[in-house]
């Protein structure tokens, strides 16, 4: 698999505080990578490192296969865009002037495609209105437009829907999906709004206390979160035999317990098990969401920054 961003044993310390400690990440090309973690888990720290705003204390990361310690990393960064925390825009300028500034910084010779970019993010009618008079959603969209200047193929968004109204959230989601599908732009999106992230992401990375706890694709997560019946039996080997005979998908995770991933006729199953002297001790219906998966993985502690 091609990766846009990878990191191994990456650490960032602020005096005695370890914001990232032995951190690893693998962002596949063309993915929408949902970067999930509590406040203070280290999400923004990683983004700052990748954007070149700060240097790692230990370890390295690679961007487009180029190590951050190599001189060519600056060239690689020209292929990425980012909105870190708040959109980086001149409040005293119009949307058009902000984009012109960004074009100059990048060194693009012509401003011809600025109107198209403004249209893409839905800011084509802002005219001479200064950015300081924009709504939060408009500022976020302008931030994305700036990140899109220079046609990058990797965009990092740090909490892109924070503070947006429901309409703004929908627009942001549609914009990200559109850019991912039509322009094959890879996204790294940090968020703790799991419901929203679950509508976008193709891959997830769960971070806690500066460590990557788990990386998982959306497909794997769907499988892990499938609706199932959790059954506790007296003999799990008998259960497995019966389920195999019934051609039912299942997963055994202890000596007595298993998850059954199909709509099952409970009476038939009970009779089949009874015939082989296996008792059903308990039976519960379960449905795991990204939220419950996250809580199970990280724990529900309230350790905010």
């Amino acid at each position: 698999m091609d990766y846009i961003l990878t990191a191994d044993s990456l650490s960032k310390h602020y005096r005695h505080f370890k914001a990232l400690d032995g951190f690893s990440i693998h962002v596949p090309k063309g993915s929408i990578y949902g970067f999930v973690g509590k406040n203070g888990a280290g999400k923004t720290t990683l983004i700052r490192l990748v954007c070149g705003l700060q240097d790692p204390t230990h370890g390295t990361y690679t961007l487009y296969g180029m190590k951050n310690t190599e001189p060519g990393i600056a060239k690689c960064r020209r292929r990425m865009g980012a909105v870190v925390e708040t959109p980086s825009i001149y409040l005293d300028m119009t949307a058009m002037d902000n984009l012109k500034e960004q074009y100059r910084i990048i060194g693009l010779p012509s401003f011809d495609d600025i109107p198209e970019l403004l249209h893409l993010v839905g800011l084509e009618n802002t005219g001479k209105k200064k950015v300081k008079h924009f709504s939060l959603g408009m500022k976020q969209r302008l931030g994305i437009a700036l990140a899109l200047a220079g046609s990058p193929d990797f965009i990092i968004l740090d909490e892109p829907i924070n503070g947006l109204d429901p309409q703004g959230i929908i627009e942001m989601r549609e914009l990200i999906l559109k850019l991912n599908r039509e322009r094959q732009i890879t996204f790294l999106i940090s968020s703790h709004i799991l419901d929203e992230l679950s509508r976008l992401a193709t891959h997830y990375g769960f971070i806690d206390s500066g460590h990557m706890v788990r990386e998982i694709s959306a497909k794997e997560l769907d499988a892990a979160c499938r609706k199932c019946i959790r059954v506790q039996v007296s003999d799990v080997r008998v259960l497995a035999r019966v389920l195999d005979e019934m051609k039912i998908d299942y997963n055994i995770f202890s000596d007595t317990m298993a998850d059954i991933y199909a709509k099952t006729n409970i009476s038939k199953l009970t009779l089949a098990l009874a015939e082989q002297d296996c008792d059903i001790i308990s039976l519960t219906e379960r449905e795991e969401s990204l939220e419950s998966f996250y809580v199970n993985l990280i724990g529900g502690g309230n350790q905010n920054e």
Binding site: L53, R78, S88
Partner: peptide, 14 residues
């Protein structure tokens, strides 16, 4: 204050 210094660093200016 506007955070625009980040734009310059992100796209690789030294």
């Amino acid at each position: 204050s506007d955070g625009t210094l980040r734009n310059k660093l992100i796209i690789g200016h030294t």
